[in-house]
């Protein structure tokens, strides 16, 4: 075959391929037309969402029932829309906690960054997404509305058992700690 012919043929094949490429999608979409839709008829039907889906936010408690949140401000710093605000305070027993804690769900985008930032596993997103409100102010949640009485997805963790501060137990009594150093010992 002459080289020109080869070229021409290749060209023709290409054109055919392109034409088919243009048409094949039509077949695909047409096929879809006769496939059963996957739509779920909310609110009559409801899907059970996985535990890690990102909906309404809660503040959980440690195994001993105390508030986990230590008002470290990491969640509010991580929040890309700045919808978390709080004030840190010291409880009578010396524990650091949030005297008030507010999430403006009107602004929250449920990105979950707060949960990722939280070092005490206090703030967690739940699968609950059904909490729209008629007025926007009702979407501003205060601490009593956020605080739950369980540990959420991580029921066993207790930050204060691992930290070195004495809010729960004396120095040396936390997980993986030695007895406090005796400064006045004279031995080398």
């Amino acid at each position: 075959m002459l080289p020109e012919m080869v070229k021409l043929r290749r060209k023709g094949e290409e054109l055919l391929e392109d034409g088919l490429g243009l048409l094949r999608p039509f077949a695909t979409t047409l096929g879809m037309l006769f496939t059963r839709p996957i739509t779920v008829q909310y609110p009559e039907e409801k899907r059970v969402l996985p535990a890690r889906s990102r909906g309404r936010i809660i503040l959980t408690r440690s195994p001993d029932g105390d508030e986990r949140c230590v008002a470290c401000f990491l969640c509010s710093a991580a929040c890309p829309v700045s919808c978390i605000s709080m004030e840190a305070a010291t409880r009578e027993d010396g524990r650091r906690y949030a005297s008030w804690f507010r999430i403006n769900f009107g602004r929250c985008i449920f990105c979950g960054l707060c949960e990722e930032a939280c070092p005490t596993l206090a703030i967690q997103l739940t699968p609950d997404y059904e909490f729209s409100k008629a007025t926007i102010m009702e979407l501003v949640y205060e601490k009593p509305a956020l605080l739950v009485d369980h540990g959420g997805k991580d029921p066993d963790y207790d930050f204060y058992r691992h930290a070195g501060v004495t809010e729960k137990g004396e120095k040396g009594s936390h997980v993986n700690e030695q007895e406090p150093v005796d400064v006045k010992r004279l031995l080398p």
Binding site: V70, C72, P119, T120, H162, G164, V165, E167
Partner: peptide
């Protein structure tokens, strides 16, 4: 070093 950053005022 203790596991203190969340309750440590130096953090940040």
């Amino acid at each position: 070093h203790p596991h203190d950053c969340p309750v440590c005022d130096e953090g940040g």
